[in-house]
């Protein structure tokens, strides 16, 4: 999932200071799981904003709403009319959600309330770790399921550098060397010979941005026709 963290309250407060009617819009998917921008976080932020406005003697109407996904048109469309009743939308979704809501609502300013951090996993209660850089050319099968693009400080894909010591990275003694981990994993799988074979070249050309993904089976006929021309 995409992991995010809420922005500092002072920063949010500064960005919304000109608006008198504000909709706090949560997202019920990734940011909900990582406790940054789901329904509960919307309630918390809205409550904090109401209290600070009361203390500052400011009349601001704060609305609350959480939709299943802000990165999906079908969930945004039902709230367009509601959103238009507000001066601005404070979105608690990841950067993708914020941009898509902004694109659909267009005239209404959208302010992000979270910082989007990475694609990761829930490692423990309240702990999320980055696991994937979305490089577009997954070679995890070769690396025992450990991504050197993400886990190695230098993103080396063909073996360790000379800087590791006692299984730790030279950039930080707290950080595991990805390649030591890969060695250990392949060893457990009885596939150490995999390391002797050398690794295939990585195709970095697929990393052009903004990336685009099409499933032709689901593409609307008019789009397919436009593509053929």
């Amino acid at each position: 999932m995409i992991v995010a963290e809420r922005k500092p309250f002072a920063e949010i407060k500064e960005k919304i200071k000109d608006y008198k009617k504000l909709l706090v819009l949560g997202c019920g998917t990734c940011v909900s799981v990582c406790q940054a921008g789901g329904e509960k976080e919307v309630e918390l932020l809205a409550t904090e904003l109401r209290m600070v406005n009361k203390m500052d003697d400011r009349e601001v109407e704060i609305g609350e709403l959480t939709i299943q996904r802000q990165c999906d048109r079908e969930y945004i469309e039902p709230i367009i009319e509601k959103a238009k009743e507000y001066d601005a939308v404070l979105s608690m979704a990841c950067g993708a959600g914020v941009q898509f809501v902004a694109e659909i609502l267009e005239e209404i300013p959208i302010i992000p309330a979270v910082n989007t951090r990475f694609i990761g996993v829930t490692a423990d209660e309240g702990l999320w770790l980055e696991k994937c850089r979305a490089c577009g050319n997954c070679l995890l099968a070769d690396y025992g399921g450990i991504c050197p693009m993400t886990m190695c400080a230098k993103s080396l894909v063909n073996g360790p550098c000379g800087g590791y010591k006692d299984g730790k990275c030279e950039t930080s003694r707290e950080r595991d060397c990805a390649w030591v981990k890969i060695y250990e994993r392949l060893s457990k799988q009885g596939k150490l010979d995999r390391m002797r074979e050398g690794f295939s070249l990585k195709d970095y050309s697929v990393q052009s941005h903004p990336a685009r993904q099409v499933n032709e089976a689901y593409t609307k006929p008019e789009l397919a026709a436009a593509k053929e021309k």
């Binding site: 509960k40 309630e43 918390l44 409550t47 904090e48 109401r50 209290m51 009361k54």
Partner: peptide
């Protein structure tokens, strides 16, 4: 929950 406390203050 934190929310209960905040709502009470609010």
């Amino acid at each position: 929950d934190t929310l209960h406390l905040l709502k009470a203050f609010e």
